[in-house]
Amino acid sequence: MAGFSVVPVRAKHQRLILLGVALAALVAAGLLAAWALRNQASYFYVPSEIIAKPPEADRSVRLGGMVVRGSMKNAPDGVTVNFIVTDGKQQVPVRFAGIKPALFVEGSGVVAEGHWQDGLFTADNLLAKHDEKYTPREMQGMTTDQAHKAIAETK
C-alpha cells in the first residue's frame, strides 16, 4: 500500500520550472512581435518591392540598394545627378539634386528618401550605406576578393 508516495517538489525546483516556462513564453512573444514587425520595421524598400507594390506618389518612402556601376550621370546644371539603384533583381532610376555624402559612389550602397512617381524615384535626401567590408587604403584599386587574397598571401 505504501509503495506509492508523492515526492515533494523542492521550492527552488518549482521556481526553476516556473521561470523556464515564463521565459519560453516571453521569447515566443518577442519572436512573434518581431515577425509581425518584419515589414513595418524595415528602414527602406528595395527596388523589387517598389516595383511590385508601388507606393502612392504623395507618400514619402525610402529606397535602398546598390548604385549600378557606370549609371551615375551628372546633369549640366551641376547639382542634379541621375543614377540607377538595384537590388540584384530589379532596377530603379533615381534623380537627386543637392549635396552628395562623401561615401556616395558607384557600386556602393545608398538609401534615398523621396517619392516614387511614373517610374522615377525623386530623392530629397541621400544617405550613404556602408557595408560590412573593411579594407585598408593601401589595397585601394583591388576588389575585395583580390584584397583578401593579398592578405592571405602575406600571412
Binding site: 518584419r38 524595415s42 528602414y43 535602398g64 544617405l127 550605406k129 557595408d131
Partner: peptide, 18 residues
C-alpha cells in the same frame, strides 16, 4: 537578440556584422 538580429531581419542603414 533583437539588437543583434535587427540588421539581418530588417533592411537597416546600419551594416550587418563584420
Amino acid at each position: 537578440p533583437i539588437i543583434h538580429y535587427s540588421v539581418l531581419w530588417w533592411n537597416s542603414l546600419h551594416q550587418p556584422p563584420s
